[in-house]
Design a binder for these strands. Structure first.
Length: 545
RNA sequence: GGCCCGAUGGUCAAGCGGCUAAGACACCGCCCUUUCACGGCGGUAUCACGGGUUCGAUUCCCGUUCGGGUCACCA
């Protein structure tokens, strides 16, 4: 068979050579060990936690090594495309602190290895497709969808492996006359890879995350170009990542199964394959069953969820790092305030099995993170959030900035900061009692304090209260009330001889606390009342007498 | 069903032939305390199962089971 002639027949418009492109996209001039990574989302307009998970891996690998991280839009499936999707991808990732050095962007693209939209790279793919045909490594296949479906049915009946391979590859050895005739008739066709006869059954490959893998050598004549001339993911991946000089390919483990395709293609084109990093999937427990996070069922998969709930990007990043690199947590413990850039991220510390997404852990990480922020920053962040996500809360917070800042500063700073808040939505619940519009009694008064004692406590409190008391004067009075009414002035005393008392000063404070804040849990009472003001504090107390 | 990957407490996990099997979250208890927190200390709880190999297996090999992924002109 005259492969050269077939190649000319199939690709009459290709006027460039592989050498031309090799020269156009020369190896990158980067320091030794610099990694080049990329994110290749399809423009569906949906970007999720899994994408961010991979993006952070790419970003760390590249930027930690002085390399390049670029964005390539994999728009080879036109059915999936959503308008404005690139903006969403760039904006969302940027919100979470992931920035690209090169590639597709909101206003065009930057970088010397473009175009970065795969649809615009048709000429390039065709050039290499032509080369594969010339080398006898690819051929046109005229099977219709029905024929393929029929083949699948027969394979099923024979219990043969599904796929277009071996004796099932009916167009594999068509001669030129047949092909020319079909072409002349205008029959649509796809270009298939001609899988070489496998020499061994298996090959070994090293994955940066998983170590050595053993895979069956590819024998499938998979599709390179679809009938519209657009490449499949497989072909585009190989051509692009070679020409864009990607050194490390980070992708989900769902690609493991087609890795033999890619390895075979790299070999057929005479190129060196990149280092692969197949990441584990983020899972979720649902009714006792561990499963992949799903777009439809799990709102927490969407990155908008974290934005809307008011999780800080930095906190989400910290959490993801704990899941991503098993030694991150220990490192963080040892370096509580070090910038995250100082942490050495390594693929071999990444988990191989799918981890459950753990919202408790996120909240914990987030609480610690928020506790390190100063009041001004918190005020700015929470109002920024509320402005778009909770206008009512925004109104309340900005009505009196001084008041809000004081409220926020309670228990903040110092050696032992409070850790009450994990995300802004929850901060509204936490701070609600500071605002009369939201204030309500949420917790019961302590049950070991009788109604009459409660009234007595509050009445005495009212009598002796002085807004000008400092914290210790204030508490001495509370203690005096406790003692008067038969409560131990110190918890320790009560513990030593509980039979002597009705309770201890903590119970007395709890009564006041519930009256003033509506809960048994609140920041320091004295501080709260300083912020709230005498009038409002005492009004709340008065209501319960 | 074929193929691939995986399996350590409720969750995330360290571990790479020899330990009373780290640590974190959650949970429980205690301590500290001027209340609420923060913090400190401690506790419950794990090597999926069966065979090998070995003086010795959580660690290596083989099965089983279970979980996940994938088998498109989608990525």
């Amino acid at each position: 068979m005259d492969n050269k002639r077939l190649a000319r027949l199939l690709f009459p418009n290709v006027d460039k050579t592989p050498e031309y492109y090799e020269k156009l996209y020369p190896p990158r001039n980067l320091p030794e060990g610099a990694k080049v990574t990329r994110l290749g989302p399809s423009p569906t307009g949906f970007i999720h936690l899994g994408n961010l998970f991979g993006a952070i891996t790419d970003e760390r690998l590249a930027h930690q090594s002085g390399g390049v991280f670029f964005l390539r839009i994999e728009d080879t499936d036109n059915k999936r495309e959503v308008e404005g999707a690139v903006d969403v991808i760039v904006d969302t990732l940027s919100y979470f602190g992931v920035e690209f050095d090169e590639g597709a962007g909101k206003s065009g693209e930057t970088g010397a290895y473009g175009p970065y939209w795969q649809r615009q790279r048709a000429d390039i793919y065709h050039c290499f497709a032509k080369k594969l045909v010339e080398d006898g490594m690819a051929y046109p296949c005229f099977c219709t969808e029905e024929e393929l479906a029929d083949m699948r049915r027969r394979q099923e009946a024979e219990k043969a492996n599904p796929g277009y391979y071996g004796k099932w590859a009916v167009h594999r050895d068509w001669d030129l006359e047949h092909i020319e005739a079909a072409l002349a008739e205008g029959k649509p066709y796809v270009l298939r890879f001609r899988a070489p006869d496998p020499e061994g059954k298996y090959f070994k490959i090293r994955d940066a995350i998983r170590g050595e893998l053993s895979m069956p050598v590819n024998d499938i004549d998979f599709v390179l170009l679809k009938s519209d001339g657009i490449p499949t993911y497989h072909f585009a991946h190989v051509v692009d990542d070679h020409l864009m000089r990607t050194t490390h390919v980070v992708r989900g483990e769902e690609w493991l199964g087609t890795l033999p395709f890619h390895i075979a293609l790299f070999a057929a084109l005479g190129w060196k394959a990149p280092v692969y990093c197949h990441t584990a999937q983020l899972m979720k427990i649902d009714g006792g069953i561990k499963r992949k996070l799903s777009k439809r069922k799990d709102p927490e998969l969407s990155l908008d969820y974290y934005k809307n709930e008011g999780y800080l990007p930095g906190a989400v990043w910290e959490y993801l790092m704990t899941v991503l690199n098993s030694n991150f947590e220990d490192w963080r413990l040892a370096h509580p305030t070090a910038p995250i850039d100082d942490f050495k991220f390594t693929p071999n510390k990444m988990s191989v099995s799918g981890s459950l997404f753990d919202i408790d852990k996120l909240n914990d990480v987030s609480k610690n993170y928020l506790a390190t922020l100063d009041s001004e920053t918190v005020y700015k962040c929470v109002t920024d959030w509320a402005k778009v996500c909770d206008p009512e809360y925004y109104e309340l917070l900005t009505r009196d900035k001084d008041f809000s800042t004081k409220m926020i500063s309670i228990g903040r700073g110092g050696k032992k900061p409070r850790k009450d808040i994990s995300h802004w939505k929850q901060s509204k619940e936490f701070y609600s009692f500071f605002f009369d519009e939201l204030f309500k009694i949420e917790d019961d008064f302590p049950e070991n304090v009788s109604d009459s004692d409660r009234k007595a406590i509050l009445a005495k409190y009212l009598e002796t209260y002085d807004q000008n008391d400092d914290q210790s004067q204030w508490f001495d009075k509370v203690r005096a009330i406790a003692e008067d009414l038969g409560f131990a002035p110190q918890p320790k005393m009560y513990k030593q001889s509980p039979e002597l008392y009705k309770g201890h000063v903590g119970d007395v404070s709890a009564v006041i606390r519930v009256a003033v804040t509506g809960r048994q849990n609140s920041p320091d009472l004295w501080c709260v009342q300083q912020v709230l003001g005498e009038k409002r504090s005492l009004e709340r107390v008065r209501k319960h007498i």
